[in-house]
Amino acid sequence: MLIELVKVAKDSGHLCLADVRTPLGRILVRWCGDRAAEPGEYRVEWTIDEDIVWGQNAKPAAGIGPGLRTDGHDVVLRGRLSLTEDGAAVLGLDGTNILLDLADPLPEDVADRWVEIFIDRERTMLYPYTL
């Protein structure tokens, strides 16, 4: 996904947090790139470092369509959920796929539906890459 990096700053735990703008919203997440990165556009890969538990940090979306927002210390990602044949889950977020780790199998009726996942901003990571 193409994002606009507004700034990188350390938090109290010495992690780098990035203030980023995307076509879907503005959020604060963990930055896994150069701590001295300059503001500008970056292509990033998303990683979620938390198991998904249906009914706790994942639920049906109130709306339709992809989105990003902040809810307190959490990042809320709204996307279309897909289940693979081997039981893995993927969140489709505006052309970007994010592999999700599941604590338990998801209900079958959530496949191909819009869902929201709530992940602590320090467990929602962006890895910049170049093509």
Rank of each mutant, 00 (worst) to 15 (best):
L2N: 12
E4Y: 12
E4R: 13
E4L: 04
L5M: 06
V8Q: 12
A9T: 15
A9K: 15
A9Q: 15
D11P: 02
D11I: 02
S12L: 15
H14E: 14
H14R: 14
A18S: 05
A18I: 10
A18N: 08
D19F: 11
D19T: 11
V20R: 04
R21D: 07
R21C: 06
R21M: 06
R21S: 08
P23C: 09
L24Q: 10
L24Y: 14
L24H: 08
L28N: 03
V29H: 03
V29M: 07
R30H: 05
R30Y: 01
W31I: 00
C32I: 00
C32G: 06
C32R: 14
G33V: 13
G33P: 09
D34F: 07
A36R: 15
A36S: 15
A37D: 10
A37K: 03
A37L: 09
A37C: 10
P39V: 10
P39M: 11
E41G: 01
Y42G: 02
V44M: 10
E45Q: 14
E45W: 12
W46L: 05
W46F: 13
W46N: 00
T47H: 08
T47K: 12
I48C: 10
I48P: 00
D49M: 09
D51Q: 14
I52Y: 00
I52W: 02
V53H: 11
W54T: 02
W54H: 03
G55A: 11
G55H: 11
G55R: 10
Q56M: 08
Q56A: 05
Q56K: 14
N57T: 03
K59T: 07
A61Y: 02
A62H: 03
G63R: 13
G63H: 12
I64T: 07
G65N: 00
G67V: 04
G67Y: 07
L68F: 06
L68A: 00
R69W: 08
T70N: 08
D71S: 15
D71R: 15
D71V: 11
H73Q: 10
D74C: 01
D74G: 01
D74K: 03
V75M: 03
V76T: 01
L77D: 02
R78W: 05
R80A: 07
L81N: 08
L81H: 06
L81Y: 08
L83T: 03
L83F: 02
L83E: 08
T84F: 07
T84G: 05
T84P: 03
T84Q: 09
E85I: 00
D86Q: 13
D86M: 05
G87R: 14
G87E: 14
A88Q: 09
A89R: 07
L91W: 08
L91N: 04
L91Y: 07
G92F: 03
D94V: 01
G95M: 02
G95H: 04
N97L: 11
I98D: 01
I98A: 13
L102C: 07
A103T: 01
P105N: 05
P105L: 06
L106F: 12
P107W: 09
D109R: 14
D109M: 13
V110R: 08
V110D: 08
A111C: 04
R113T: 15
V115I: 15
E116I: 02
F118N: 04
F118I: 04
F118A: 02
D120Q: 07
R121T: 01
R123P: 00
R123E: 04
T124H: 07
L126Q: 02
Y127Q: 03
Y127P: 00
P128M: 09
P128W: 11
Y129P: 08
T130F: 09
T130K: 10
L131Y: 12
